[in-house]
């Protein structure tokens, strides 16, 4: 991964000349950020680990005997009848830990990673400005939030289709939809999860501005997500529950109802927007007043 970072520098330095065109500079900065992020072996390792979850589930169900209904995570017992349920099961299983873990790694690395490599000041030498760099870094983390659930869903649908029959999918309401609409529902759930992870990414971004040790920011982000989920389970903290960013994480079941229930999607989006605003502002306050030493 260090080898990919210097490739970044000539790019931003190249766009440094037309200072009169800040918008194009921001866009090319974003493009280079995405190129670096998704060119990294680490990012691919994270996505591969996520894609391994549905594969593991599908193979385990394939080689073992039938799962009795009501046992294990939701949808697990449906897999043998319909391979598309691998995608739903895998997304459900990966929400509490694997998604926050991978997002924590990416978001925690945003600023601290550059700082630890000593490349942060080069990025800021270009007339990009700290605000723009922060926005671009956050956009990169968001891009990963979009790609990660999609990876799980699509890998699940693919391995499910390969190992099990694919047919009309029974929704939670008892209605049945064709596989094409089921694929749309998978994408909707991925969108729901992408929105769900936006708040955590903002927290990771803020934590990343606090330190030059990326591992610290990553670990702290993951710990925050675990703490939030534990707090969400404690009935004594019920007043706090609607304010926890993980509160609606498992609400994506609403995407599997007939008619579709958008309430939790909307509540989740508002909640995550609040977290993005608060921690984005904190990250801004910290990053623009920080002495960049590396």
């Amino acid at each position: 991964m260090p080898s990919s970072v210097p490739a970044d520098i000539p790019n931003t330095a190249g766009t440094a000349l037309p200072a009169a065109a800040p918008r194009s500079s921001g866009l090319s900065l974003l493009a280079s950020e995405l190129r670096v992020l998704f060119g990294r072996r680490r990012t691919w390792a994270l996505l591969l680990a996520l894609a391994a979850i549905p594969v593991l589930i599908a193979v385990a169900v394939k080689v073992s005997s039938a799962v009795p209904p009501g046992r294990g995570p939701a949808f697990l017992d449906r897999i043998t009848q319909n391979g598309l349920f691998v995608a739903f099961t895998a997304m459900l299983v990966s929400v509490p830990l694997f998604m926050p873990l991978t997002v924590g790694v990416v978001a925690g690395d945003t600023i601290a990673g550059e700082a630890s490599l000593g490349t942060l000041r080069y990025l800021l030498v270009a007339p990009a400005g700290r605000v723009r760099l922060l926005l671009v870094k956050y956009a990169g983390a968001l891009a990963f939030c979009i790609v990660a659930p999609l990876t799980v869903g699509l890998a699940g649908a693919a391995i499910g289709a390969a190992l099990f029959p694919v047919g009309p999918v029974t929704l939670l309401s008892g209605g049945v939809v064709q596989p094409s609409e089921a694929a749309l529902r998978i994408v909707l759930i991925a969108a729901y999860l992408a929105v769900s992870l936006a708040g955590l990414s903002a927290i990771g971004l803020f934590l990343s501005t606090l330190t030059v040790v990326p591992v610290g920011a990553m670990a702290a982000t993951v710990v925050v997500s675990v703490v939030s989920q534990v707090a969400d389970q404690l009935p004594q903290l019920e007043w706090l529950h609607p304010w926890l960013f993980s509160h609606y994480w498992l609400g994506f079941g609403d995407m599997l109802r007939q008619p579709l229930a958008w309430d939790s999607f909307a509540s989740n989006a508002i909640l995550q927007a609040g977290y993005v605003a608060v921690f984005g502002a904190l990250a801004y306050g910290r990053f623009v007043t920080k002495d960049i030493l590396s």
Partner: peptide, 24 residues
């Protein structure tokens, strides 16, 4: 609407259906 599950009662004319998604 339960979390990742649903219980339904549907009445259509003289037919009444109960459905629980948890155990299908």
């Amino acid at each position: 609407m339960d979390q990742l599950a649903e219980r339904d009662v549907v009445r259509h004319g003289s037919d009444v259906w109960f459905y629980s998604s948890k155990d299908n």
